[in-house]
Design a protein around this nucleic acid. Sequence first.
RNA 1: GGCCACGUGGCGGAGUGGUUACGCAGCGGAUUGCAAAUCCGUGCACCCCAGUUCGAUUCUGGGCGUGGCCUCCA
Length: 466
Amino acid sequence: MNATTPDLTLYNTLTRQKDRFVPLDEKRVTMYVCGPTVYNHAHIGNARPAVAFDVLVRVLRRLYPQVIYVRNITDIEDKIIEMAQAEGVEISVITERYADIYRADMGALGVALPDVEPLATETIPEMIAMMERLIAAGHAYEAEGHVLFDVPSFPDYGALSRRPMDEMIAGARVEVAPYKKSPGDFVLWKPSTDEQPGWESPWGRGRPGWHIECSAMIEKHLGETIDIHGGGIDLQFPHHENELAQSLCSHEGAPFARYWLHNGFVNMNTEKMSKSLGNVLLVHDLIEAAPGEAIRLALLNAHYRQPLEWNDDVLPQSKAMLDRLYGAIRKLGDVTAVTDDVVPDAFLEALLDDLNTPKALAELFVMAKKANVATDDGERAQLKAALVQSGFLLGILQQDANSWFEGEAAGATDLDAAAIEAQIEARKAARASKDFAEADRIRDALADAGVLIEDGPEGTKWKLAG
RNA sequence: GGCCACGUGGCGGAGUGGUUACGCAGCGGAUUGCAAAUCCGUGCACCCCAGUUCGAUUCUGGGCGUGGCCUCCA
C-alpha cells in the first residue's frame, strides 16, 4: 500500500460507525465469517455474505501480506438430527451431502474456499475446554445435564446488539427453562438421548449449543482476538452477542472481534424470502438458469449492508451489465494487457470505503467506456489490464471475453461452435456477393437457434442469446 | 409490544445541504447493405407532512409503508 492509497474503512457494528481498519498485526490479518448449517440448499440470501466477504478478503489480500480467513460449517444441529433420523442415516451423511453442495454452489458464484473451513464436530474438545474455563470463572453453570452461560455474570452483555439485558427479559419471549438461573441465560451444552448423536463430557453425554462452536473454532484457528468477524445481520443477536460473551469471559476479558461486519438481507419483490411464501430462490437452481458470474454481480450491485431487492429483472440486468463489460474487453482482444498494477484509484477508493461495490462498479463502467473509445494501443493495453485487475477484486471478469459470449449460455443452442462458424462463413460469402437475402436468412436462422451475430471491422463475432 | 434498519426515475442501485451517479430498459441521431455492438444526445426521481435553512432528496420531528431482531433463520 503506497502513501497515496487511502485507508480501508469498515462500518463496525460495535461502534455503529465507519472505522478506519487497523489490524492488530498487519502481517497477519484474521477474519472469521459464520458459515452455513448444512441441512438444506443455500438460497440467494445465504449467498450474500459468502460473496460480500469474499470481496473483502480479496481487498484485504491486496493490502496485507497474509490474511487468514476462516469460515465454519455447522454440522451438528437439531434440524440436521431430525433429517438424519427421517432418512435413517448418520448425520454425517446429511452434513457431507449439503456441505458439498454448498461448496459447489458458492464456487459457481466465484467464492473462493476459506483458508480454514472447520467443522463443529471436529472442535468438540475445544468447546468442552472453553466451557470448563467458563464454569471455573463463574460465567457458566451446570444444570440438569446442561451447561448454561450465566448472562448476569457478564455486565457488558448486549453491547454489540445494543440491547439492555433488562429490556430483553421484559420482552418475555425468551424461553425460560426451569433449570435457567436467569431468563437470558443460553445453552452451551445440552444432553443427548441415546438416539441422538452425542459426545462424552464432564456433564455427561451431550452435544453443543450453537453459539459455543464459533467461539471455540475462532480460538482454535485464529486465537483469542481476531480482526474481523462477519455474518448476516440476523446473527447480530443472539448469536454474535453470545459468541462475544463466551469468548471474552473465557479469555479473561481479552478483546474478541475488533470489527464486526453484518450484511443486509435479500428481499423478494419487496417482501421477505420465506418458505411459507414460496419465494425462496436456491442458488442451486439459479446457477442452472443464469451464469454464476451474473448472480454474483447481482449481489454486488447493492452495498452489502443495504437490503437488496430481488425480482425477475435482476438477473437479466446483471447479465446485460456483464455483456457490456466483457464487450469492452473483447474489443481489446488485439492488445495484450500490461502487467503493471493499474487498478484505478477511484475504483480502489470505492472498495476501501466500506466496500462500496456499486460505486466500484460504476468506475468499472467508466473504464469500459474509455476502452470503447480508445484508439491508442498503449492506452488500450492499460485499460484491458485495469478492467481485468479491477474485476478480480470483485471476483468478476476473469474469464476470456469470447468464452463469456460463446460459452456461458451453453445449452441455449443445439449448434456447436464449428457449425456456427460454418454458417458465418456461408453468410460472409453471401454478403460478399451482395446476396443480402441469403445473408439475412442465415442470420435469422442462427438467431432462431439462439446465436446472435455482430459484424465488426475485424470480422463477424457471435454470442449466444441470454 | 420493545429495539433497529430502510423507503431515490419503468427496474436494480450509489451519493450529496445548492452542480451528471452508474447500469438495464425507452426515445432520437451517427455508424451499418439491414441489423447487432459501439458512439453522441435525451426523457423519467429523491414516500407524506411540518420544522431548521437563503436553499433539503440530503439535517430534525411526526406520519405512513417495507424489512430485521427480540423464538439457536444470511
